[in-house]
């Protein structure tokens, strides 16, 4: 099955990411999920912010928007509200989404706007060569944390659920099948869906923290991720230092754009003799 390649701008490849960078794995998983669902590529808009992960849209054959640092979800909100029929996907990184874009993230989640957000969490700012991010675990090294990170990281899954996201999953680039399943479910979900993918930055995070290269970072994910279902049956001490993967949250809730369209219909019924705007300008309506 290589129909996922049809979703790439193949003439833009190979990509700019370093050897073994997890971002490629996530991008591949996304295209496979889209191919599996048979989503029309003319009906997809992929939006990103700034950073390594945010370069992904350039390789994808959709209407793609590479925006400003942290702002992808705000741009995506404008697009989705304008044209709710579009499938809007946001590709972002840990810094882009939870630091500079944290406010937009919690508000997009709160609105439950029908956007799928995939966060490529590599625990570091890769594009600027390895500074610690809000997702860098305490004690780990970054170029701006030369003595170890003293800050506490976000638990992104908790953040997403608490903010109101209605589908939340987490996987790793090692657990790529689970990752693909979660992305597929997220794409099918009506509402704000979030998939966090824990991946490696061998060039900066791996090297700085002496974890090793791409292979060792995949090994680390394999050894430290525990599926949420398996974890339920495990004693607490066995979960020390591990992190959970799987589907964490899935609920139905009113979705923002459909609520707004309903509001428009209600208002228009109320003003049923309305002639198209305060100045009778019919060209505004779509």
């Amino acid at each position: 099955m290589s129909e996922n390649l049809n979703y790439f701008r193949q003439n833009r490849l190979p990509h700019i990411w370093c050897p073994g960078c997890g971002h490629g794995t996530v991008t591949g998983a996304l295209t496979r999920a889209l191919a599996k669902l048979g989503i029309d590529k003319n009906n997809v808009v992929v939006v990103s912010g700034i950073g390594c992960s945010s370069r992904a849209p350039g390789y994808l054959d959709f209407d793609t928007l590479h925006t400003a640092h942290g702002r992808a979800l705000a741009f995506a909100t404008g697009i989705k509200l304008s044209k709710p029929s579009l499938k809007v996907i946001v590709l972002t990184g840990d810094g882009d989404c939870t630091a500079i874009g944290g406010n937009h993230f919690i508000h997009a989640a709160r609105r439950n706007i029908d956007i799928t957000t995939i966060v490529m969490n590599n625990s570091i700012y890769g594009m600027t060569s390895g500074q610690y991010s809000p997702m860098t675990p305490t004690g780990m090294l970054g170029t701006t944390a030369p003595y170890g990170n003293v800050e506490r990281p976000f638990d992104f899954v908790k953040l997403a659920i608490a903010s109101g996201a209605t589908f939340v999953g987490r996987s790793t680039t090692y657990h790529v099948q689970l990752l693909g399943d979660l992305i597929e479910k997220a794409l099918l979900h009506k509402g704000f869906s979030v998939v966090e993918s824990i991946g490696g930055c061998p060039t900066y995070y791996g090297r700085k923290n002496k974890i090793g290269g791409a292979v060792e970072m995949f090994e680390w994910q394999k050894d430290n991720a525990v599926n949420i279902k398996a974890a339920a049956a495990m004693p607490k001490e066995k979960l020390d230092g591990k992190f959970l993967i799987g589907e964490f949250h899935n609920e139905e809730a009113p979705e923002f754009t459909s609520q707004y369209i309903e509001l428009i219909e209600k208002v228009q019924r109320k003003f049923d003799d309305f002639k198209g705007g305060v100045r009778e300008c019919a060209q505004n309506s779509d």
Partner: peptide
């Protein structure tokens, strides 16, 4: 705007507004 099928959204800040 709703009367003419347009859209209004109050964003979380002015940066978000410009982006939207």
């Amino acid at each position: 705007l709703p009367k003419i099928g347009g859209r209004f959204i109050q964003m979380e800040d002015e940066i978000g507004s410009a982006a939207a």
